[in-house]
């Protein structure tokens, strides 16, 4: 596990880049999170990008925009994409957007 200078943690294993998101994801925080993920994505060029949501305690529709934006970016680069470990509150908002039809959502294993 590595940590960047501003606290976003990630793990790189066998072609997979897992980003561990934390805290609140709203319009205020999304912009910074977005640029940090994209920087990693372009530097690492993994086969798969995983956003781990286990430590996210709040997310609104700005998080949906963030997720869909990363999905689009990953697709453009030929990188597969999935979400891991959303809590039940976050699952509720993912369901509202029909996220599961676009993006695999997994539970438990990371990396």
């Amino acid at each position: 596990m590595q940590t960047n200078e501003r606290g976003l943690r990630w793990l790189e294993t066998e072609g997979s880049l897992t980003v561990y998101l934390e805290g609140d994801i709203d319009h205020h925080t999304a912009q910074t999170i977005r640029s940090r993920i994209d920087t990693r994505l372009f530097l690492v060029r993994p086969r798969e990008l995983v956003l781990d949501l286990a430590r996210v305690n709040f997310m609104d529709s700005a998080g949906l925009g963030l997720i869909l934006g990363r999905f689009t970016k990953a697709s453009e680069l030929g990188v597969s994409f999935r979400l891991n470990n959303p809590n039940r509150h976050i699952q509720k908002i993912l369901d509202l957007a029909g996220m599961e039809r676009l993006v695999p959502i997994t539970v438990g294993k990371t990396g």
Partner: peptide
């Protein structure tokens, strides 16, 4: 362009 989802009012409603 701002990576909005257009789901804000839907969230409030639901």
């Amino acid at each position: 362009a701002g990576e909005r989802s257009g789901m804000g009012f839907t969230v409030m409603e639901s």
